[in-house]
């Protein structure tokens, strides 16, 4: 295609012309999305190599442990989905894969609850992080519904009893007319496709929000930091003092503490 053939009609040329430089804000939807992502989530912020020194407790591990257990649920669930809901009643291999799925779910909820209690204890919604807290709660609630459908999908005695009992609560709330836990076909589709999709989206949004806002600073961190600043004025830092301070910033996993401003290249616009 020649340059002339590719030229835009005169009337639209001005609207659709590519901005000459970065200084000029994009006018297209995709350009605006790109600019927003570039501003809010640069790679350094999305995949940082450092974290604030206060991110130094085993409680921080439970978020990623929850994701790891979710990964195991998905992997074992894919195998079970291919073989169908009766496989694990008649095959030892099937029963073993069902056990993998079962224990992954148990660990998933344990990790998620510890993560939830940890985030509650940190009041992790501070500093415009309410959406992160809410998406985390949503992930927990959708996971409960997914767990319920999974238990019903076992197609054993437990499934019979759970669907018989659960229907009453769902019917009483007016939900059972559409979400019928005694309808195995509906439960299977919802459990294997719809709910994992919803959980996947919520978890993705949750993780992006965590990266966007960063890990919440400790309660009363301002007072601590002011004390730190005052100490540095009254007692100029020596190599020994710096080393002593660094020792206290060592983490449970033994991470090294970096000078205060070395990480500033990882900065970005904060919401």
């Amino acid at each position: 295609m020649s340059a002339e053939q590719g030229a835009l009609p005169a009337g639209r040329a001005g609207q659709d012309a590519v901005p000459a430089g970065d200084a000029e804000p994009p006018t297209s939807w995709i350009g605006r999305i790109r600019r927003r992502l570039e501003d809010d989530l640069p790679y350094e912020k999305l995949l940082p190599e450092t974290q604030p020194a206060y991110v130094a407790s085993w409680i921080y591990v439970f978020g990623v442990l929850t994701l790891a257990a979710l990964g195991m649920i998905v992997v074992s669930g894919i195998v079970l989905a291919f073989e169908g809901p009766s496989w694990y009643h008649t095959s030892n291999v099937g029963h073993w894969f069902n056990s993998l799925h079962f224990w992954s779910v148990q660990l998933f909820f344990v990790f998620m609850l510890v993560h939830l209690v940890g985030k509650f204890s940190m009041a992790a919604w501070r500093g415009h992080r309410a959406r992160t807290w809410i998406t985390g709660m949503l992930a927990f609630l959708v996971s409960i519904v997914t767990g319920l459908t999974g238990y019903v999908l076992q197609t054993n005695f437990d499934s019979q009893w759970i669907s018989f009992e659960a229907k009453d609560g769902l019917n009483a709330a007016g939900v059972g007319a559409w979400f019928n836990v005694a309808n195995l076909g509906q439960v299977a589709l919802v459990h294997v496709f719809l709910l994992p999709l919803i959980i996947g989206v919520i978890v993705a949004v949750h993780v992006v929000l965590v990266r966007l806002h960063g890990v919440v600073p400790p309660i009363d961190a301002a007072a601590v930091e002011q004390g730190r600043a005052a100490a540095s004025v009254t007692a100029p830092a020596t190599a020994e003092a710096a080393e002593r301070g660094a020792r206290h910033d060592q983490t449970a996993s033994g991470g090294d503490v970096m000078p205060v401003h070395e990480h500033e290249r990882t900065g970005g616009r904060h919401a």
Partner: peptide, 27 residues
């Protein structure tokens, strides 16, 4: 000051933290 700390990029001390490595080990 606390609000400022919570809503802006952390400028205090940091530590190396490999999230990807942590995720692989966790899995």
């Amino acid at each position: 000051a606390q609000h400022e700390l919570e809503t802006t990029h952390w400028r205090g001390p940091v530590r190396r933290y490999d999230i990807v490595k942590e995720g692989v080990i966790a899995f």
